[in-house]
């Protein structure tokens, strides 16, 4: 295996809140910015039509969004743009399936929490926008001021992120097994 991305172990960072449900990937990055042949430099288009003023420089490294985040188009550009804008994790009470996979494949950790936990996080950020959250991937725990919750991640993907490894070398290593299909 080769090193894909910086490993993700424990992250303590401030949060950029988007308390809106059903944020689709067209809203994350509109289709007209997909005319690129590289993965880089898409952060400047993140939420560009929706938040024309742009994201604040002190936006933190964690995005928190309402339920069904990343629904719609399968464009991996959404995960690339979020990552390129400096985010390492997204917290939501539900992720769209394709976005979740795309995020995991790019070292962006989707942290799915209960609606109650998410509501409390938004409440706290309302009062104290600079309140940090801590995400401990090995323990699969997310916490902020007196609140703590376990989150799910497939064991294989957890190891990939903890070690910064990627899938393709693994798939190449089992080519003989694949030959039989």
């Amino acid at each position: 295996m080769i090193l894909m991305t910086e490993p993700f172990t424990t992250l303590t960072a401030t949060v950029f809140p988007l308390p809106v449900e059903n944020i689709d990937t067209d809203r994350v990055i509109p289709a007209r910015f997909l005319k690129t042949t590289t993965r880089d430099g898409l952060g400047k288009y993140l939420f560009t039509d929706w938040l024309p003023a742009g994201l604040p420089p002190d936006r933190g490294a964690v995005l928190a969004a309402g339920a069904n985040f990343g629904c719609g188009s399968s464009r991996e550009h959404a995960a690339w743009a979020i990552r390129d804008a400096g985010f390492r994790a997204v917290i939501s009470s539900r992720f769209a399936d394709i976005f979740r996979v795309n995020a995991l494949n790019n070292g962006l950790l989707p942290v799915q929490v209960s609606p109650r936990f998410l509501a409390r996080l938004f409440d706290l950020l309302d009062q104290r926008p600079d309140a940090p959250v801590t995400i401990d991937l090995a323990a699969r725990v997310v916490r902020f001021e007196g609140e703590e919750e376990l989150f799910d991640i497939p064991a294989y993907k957890q190891q990939c992120l903890l070690k910064g490894l990627d899938d393709i070398d693994y798939l190449l290593s089992i080519r003989q097994q694949i030959e039989h299909h």
């Binding site: 494949n105 294989y156 899938d167 693994y170 089992i174 080519r175 694949i178």
Partner: peptide, 22 residues
Amino acid sequence: FGIGTSEVEMTLASQCILQPKP
């Protein structure tokens, strides 16, 4: 089903992808 570009790369390289079973 639809996949992301990392999985397009996986399919090109190995004709396989890694997926949780829905």
